[in-house]
Design a protein around this nucleic acid. Structure first.
Length: 855
RNA sequence: GGCCCCGUGGCGGAAUUUGGUAGACGCACGCGACUUAAAAUCGCGAGCCUAUGGCGUGAGGGUUCGAGUCCCUCCGGGGCCACCA
């Protein structure tokens, strides 16, 4: 028995596919187009199982869509800017460019060994100036359109690395690499006006039902965070006589207000601090805590009571004290609130701390005014208004409308929407990113680099010996001339957030050779991406940025669409078991079992605990290296296993038994076809009508399976599709092939299996297709079509129930009349016994399915 | 704290779209064939139990002729957001 030699055969077909340029995509108006894209990888060094899963899912769909007659675009690229390259440079003295390029070479090789159907002519690398020059052009267009702006704002500052960190890079208030406590610092940064599109980004999510996973749509919805409320203008009295605007979603609780609070970074706070040392200290203390929400969560709430009062809009005698507090976020709403302690937990805690009045205004149902009181828990539910002047007696909803109407009529309030979404800060004080094509001139301010000077390339001679941004320290790079006044000026030394590159690459991939970011013709033909696939970890950031970019690019005249990705699959993580012993994570190779069958470490014989099944990661030492598995089992086996076990969106547990099972199936398929007792190629064509009943049943099963496998692939249920193919395989493998009819059925069955398995395990299927005597490449063969007339059977199984419990079944002709079914089933021997002496109260017949006797 | 998802054999999972045969397919397991033997391979078996019957989809209740599927309460697991005004 010879085993399937995957090494030779997989390489053979990979080079054949490449030679025939079969996966190179071109505009072809005679076919429907299908653009399939997997989130492009960051070239971190090696591909990992998460990549394998992601790209296998994409490849199966791409190959399937080709077989279904679509003109498929399936490109790949490298998201090549980013911090790890700089880390490598700092730690190992390798230039980030070389590190990145080496990794790409390495990972490209691995992807090719997976047999992916990419159009490699379109490969892009975002750290090449041929890519980022277009990004610089886009940035300038955004500046022109008012979509990018320069603003001073509070950021997370790492005092050791001397760089800004994104909120995601701050872990428990400390820098993710340095471990230093992050400070708040006010810096001038570039921002993109994603908030201009907040409403549309939110509203369009509704149209994406069934196209994007509910979970992702919900996460984006939460992230954008629309709050409908009202802006109320409070007249201030005392030291300052201006107005204070506050935003609230609960104007109905206005009569329960007992204080106002403003953020420590509110302009009013600064104004008051000018002449107040204590207040200056207080504000500084508030600002020392990080902007990170994690940190705000754990820090204590403090208030500084100013001498200023805010006049209650409807109660002339009531003046609310104004506090400055870290209770209020500067970036949300107006950075100022009114506090109604009885209806808001946060306000209640504050009121209790500073002994402020708590006035209940909403009476919960089934409570009464005399006895209801608010203790340490605010009441936020529905109820009836009281202690609330003209709102008394109304329910909360009615009161909201009534008071908004009154506020608007009196000119002291205005309906308003506030968004949780903030503008996207894209400046990074790092070297390995796209230079921001702006210069700073003393007299002209921020000036755009003229387009004919693009690209502004990153300098290659860079010194990483001290912390901070090497671009800033570079001896010459930043010195330039202002294009407006001709005087000396300084380049922007910040680079763009790496999410900038991934926000438009899907459009660039429609035409990678264009001199402009992308051509209308290609973009209009290929976009939107019909199927996008990637990890759930990008649910908000990347997927939201890309949606924003598509709108912004449309408004700059580049595109005619606003949603980049029609359909989305977010695949789960690849997990593996972990081992913990001797106070550290252990590799499986470090473990053995002792005499009493307990897990121990080989060195030191320390006890080992088999830990939880967790996401593969180097630190947990539970990774499985794809290259190793591929060289052991071949790409087809890996592809088959990674799809077999569960549906894409769930976490997948990598297990060695599973890969064995895939390996066994592939070898069996190989043996069944190549070592069969009869010569498959010489089988004569016959009419299916002459088949024996067994052969005919298998023949029908083939058609039935085509229908269900197609349906399952369309719904991304690859595990079910594979299960059905294996079920069919089990039947086909039982055929002896003896006699013309069986031999023909056998061959037909094999062909059907190969065609259906081709997208999943393409190499072996190509080879087997050849073995069946075909010259044409399988990649060129259409998806099998089912003869629907064969699937419909003449008979059906009717389930017999008594009081809903299964009691038997009969075979009848399809569409047998109700009376006939009742007659047949009630005469059924086992029914006679069960129904004997019983009164049948009711009989329910579901045609072709069920008959239920109610006794 | 708010919102959302999930809970099915020893295990991964089918069936949930449309209430109508629960447990497809695979792993692990057992038995058999082949073999001196083992491995590999092939075939067969298998939800559980006090077994001619009964019980079974986290628990309890409800709707229905009929519930894994719909509704309510609870328990367990997971995710997202979180002093968001």
């Amino acid at each position: 028995m010879t085993r399937y030699n995957f090494k030779v055969i997989e390489e053979k077909w990979q080079s054949k596919w490449s030679q025939c340029r079969y996966f190179e995509a071109n505009i072809n108006l005679s076919k429907p187009k299908f653009y399939i894209l997997e989130m492009f990888p960051y070239p971190s060094g090696n591909i990992h199982m998460g990549h394998v899963r992601n790209y296998t899912l994409g490849d199966v769909l791409a190959r399937y869509k080709i077989a279904r007659g679509f003109n498929v675009l399936h490109p790949i690229g490298w998201d090549a800017f980013g911090l790890p390259a700089e880390n490598a440079a700092i730690e190992r003295g390798i230039h980030p460019y070389d590190w990145t390029k080496n990794n790409i070479t390495n990972m490209r090789k691995s992807l090719k060994s997976m047999g992916m159907s990419y159009d490699w002519n379109r490969e892009i690398v975002t750290c090449d100036s041929s890519y980022y020059r277009h990004e610089q052009k886009i940035f300038l267009d955004f500046v022109k359109a008012g979509l990018a702006y320069h603003k001073e704002s509070w950021v997370n500052w790492d005092p050791v690395e001397k760089t800004v960190l994104a909120n995601e890079q701050v872990i428990n208030g400390a820098g993710w690499r340095s471990g230093a406590v992050v400070e708040k610092r006010k810096l001038k940064q570039w921002f993109l006006k994603i908030t201009d599109y907040a409403e549309d980004l939110l509203d369009t999510l509704k149209n994406m039902e069934n196209l994007w996973p509910d979970k992702i749509r919900l996460m984006q919805q939460n992230w954008i965070g629309r709050s409908d409320g009202v802006l109320i203008s409070f007249q201030l009295t005392g030291e300052v006589r201006e107005k204070l605007d506050v935003f609230t979603t609960r104007p109905d609780t206005l009569f329960g207000a007992s204080f106002c609070a403003i953020s420590a970074n509110h302009t009013l706070a600064y104004k008051l601090a000018e002449t107040n040392k204590t207040l200056q200290t207080f504000i500084a203390k508030c600002n020392r805590t990080c902007t990170s929400e994690v940190n705000i969560d754990t820090s204590e709430i403090n208030g500084y009571r100013t001498a200023i009062k805010a006049k209650h809009p409807f109660l002339p005698d009531k003046n609310l004290p104004v506090y400055i507090s870290n209770l209020v976020l500067a970036e949300y709403g107006t950075g100022a609130i009114f506090g109604c302690p009885s209806s808001n937990q946060r306000d209640l805690d504050f009121a209790r701390k500073y002994n402020l009045p708590v006035i209940p205004v909403v009476l919960p149902p089934k409570e009464n005014e005399a006895t209801f009181s608010v203790g340490c828990k605010a009441y936020t539910g529905p109820g009836t208004m009281y202690n609330s002047d003209f709102l008394n007696g109304m329910d909360v909803q009615t009161a909201k409308s009534a008071i908004i109407e009154r506020l608007e009529k009196c000119g002291i309030g205005k309906r308003s929407i506030t968004w949780r979404l903030r503008d996207w800060g894209v400046s990074r004080q790092r070297y390995w990113g796209c230079p921001i094509p702006m210069i700073h001139c003393k007299s002209c301010g921020a000036v755009a680099v003229p387009e004919d000077q693009l690209p502004i390339k990153l300098p290659m001679d860079i010194d990483f010996s001290s912390p901070g941004n090497p671009l800033d320290r570079h001896p010459t790079w930043k010195y330039t001339i202002c294009s407006l006044c001709g005087n000396n000026a300084i380049r922007e030394t910040d680079t763009l957030d790496t999410f900038f590159e991934s926000s438009w690459y899907f459009a660039r991939l429609t035409d990678v050779n264009s001199d402009i970011p992308f051509e209308h013709k290609s973009a209009n033909y290929w976009l939107p991406v019909d199927q996008y696939i990637g990890g759930v970890e990008h649910a908000i950031l990347h997927l939201l940025y890309a949606r924003f970019f598509t709108r912004a690019l449309r408004d700059c005249g580049y595109l005619s669409i606003k949603e980049p990705f029609s359909q989305l699959i977010t695949q789960g993580m690849v997990c593996h078991k972990t081992y913990w012993g001797g106070n550290r994570w252990l590799y499986p190779e470090e473990i053995t079992t002792n005499a009493s069958n307990r897990l121990i470490t080989i060195e030191g014989n320390e006890p080992v605990i088999a830990g939880r099944i967790e996401k593969m990661s180097k630190s947990k030492r539970n990774t499985v290296v794809p290259e190793t598995i591929i060289s052991q089992y071949g790409a087809d086996t890996v592809r088959l296993f990674i799809l077999s076990d569960n549906p894409p969106e769930r976490d997948l547990e990598w297990n060695e038994k599973g890969i064995d099972s895939a390996w066994r199936y592939i070898n069996r398929l190989w043996r069944e076809i190549t070592e069969y007792k009869i010569n498959l190629i010489s089988i004569k064509t016959i009419k299916p009508s002459v088949l024996s009943s067994e052969a005919k049943s298998i023949y029908r099963e083939c058609h039935r399976t085509i229908v269900s496998v197609t349906d399952n692939i369309e719904k991304y249920r690859f595990n079910s599709a594979i299960a059905q193919i294996r079920e069919l395989s089990n039947r086909i493998f039982t055929l002896s092939g003896k006699g013309e009819g069986e031999a023909w059925t056998l061959r037909f069955g094999f062909e059907t299996l190969i065609k259906m398995m081709a997208p999943i395990i393409p190499h072996i299927c190509e080879e087997l297709w050849l073995k069946l005597g075909y010259r044409d490449m399988l990649a060129n063969v259409p998806w099998p079509e089912a003869d629907v007339s064969l699937i419909e059977s003449k008979t059906v199984t009717i389930v017999i129930q008594i009081n809903g419990k299964l009691r038997g079944r009969i075979e009848t002709e399809k569409n047998t009349l109700e009376e006939e079914i009742i007659a047949q089933t009630s005469k059924h021997p086992s029914m006679l016994k069960l129904l004997e002496g019983k009164t049948i109260r009711k009989i329910i017949v579901v045609p072709n399915k069920v008959v239920n006797f109610v006794i």
